[in-house]
Amino acid sequence: MDTAMQMKILKDMRRVRKMEDVCAELYTKEKIRGFLHLYIGEEAVATGVINMLSPKDNVVATYREHGHALLKGVSSKAIMAEMFGKVGGCSKGRGGSMHLYSLEHRFFGGCAIVAAGIPHAVGLAMAAQRLNEDRQTVCFFGEGAMAEGAFHEAMNMASLWHIPVLFCCENNLYAMGTALVRSQAQTDLVKKAKVYAMEAERVDGMNVFDVIEKTKMAQDYIQREKKPFFLEFQTYRFKPHSMFDPEKYRDKEEVEKWKERCPIAFLEKKMREQKILSNEQLKLMDAEIEQEMKDAVLFAEQSALEDIADLAKDVFA
């Protein structure tokens, strides 16, 4: 990775984290309501993967998708306005935190039913294949989704029919509050994927260099073999599952231990070691991000509420 790329990756990860911090703060101020699932700690995964994509590629994500949407090109303004339930939001305030959509950016949710988006990704990839469109399809889901039938059905079909999907499992070890070891008999997720005669690799999800390297490798394989690929990103959620979670299911020490592996701090350290990141650069970067998020919040504040007269609009096309 060249210097410019490392700089971009660092900035993207910091943007994702800053946006989440701002959302958390606005949640306590009751500007944002409903459920709010933060991605803090897991930034290297979406940042690494989505930076390897182009605007025309399809992304399907989960309800912990603010960062994914931002990285795919949806503006922080449109995301923040969506959080506020305003008409300027990327889903016009109809979806909220869990249902960010942007057809323009080929971002297909924002799916809040665990694993339900996985077969959508298979269908999207099949469509691109049949229509001879040059676009990749990437599907994000948590390890909890790997206990759902939809996951297994989709994996089987993708492998059986050689549908080129990049399956990205963000293994943060907990399905809400239930640990992987307490809910799945086979905790080796790569092994689990390989059951479907699909190639699979494990990735250090706290190390963005590894994320990028393995993503590229998977993309090359998909391009070459016209088959799907599964990546397990081992990562960790530093914050509670949602804003209502008292975190009774995990020790503080465990959380603190993972925080030492913060993916942003890790990249910063690596860049300093290469002498390509100075305090001034970091300060400037943070100032830009600070401004971007301020602008986003201002936009959200000023955006209009949808007219109640339009309540029944768009049930049908």
Binding site: N58, V60, F108, A116, I118, P119, H120, A121, V122, G123, L124, A125, M126, A127, A128, R130, L131, G149, A150, E153, A154, N156, M157, L160, W161
Partner: peptide, 26 residues
């Protein structure tokens, strides 16, 4: 076989695939 697809016994899977295919322009 491309137009007439015998699906595995996976109602969630192939219904979801249909949704994705519709999103993708089929």
């Amino acid at each position: 076989a491309e137009k007439i697809m015998d699906a595995p016994l996976s109602e969630v899977g192939f219904t979801g695939l249909g949704i994705g295919a519709a999103l993708g322009g089929l």
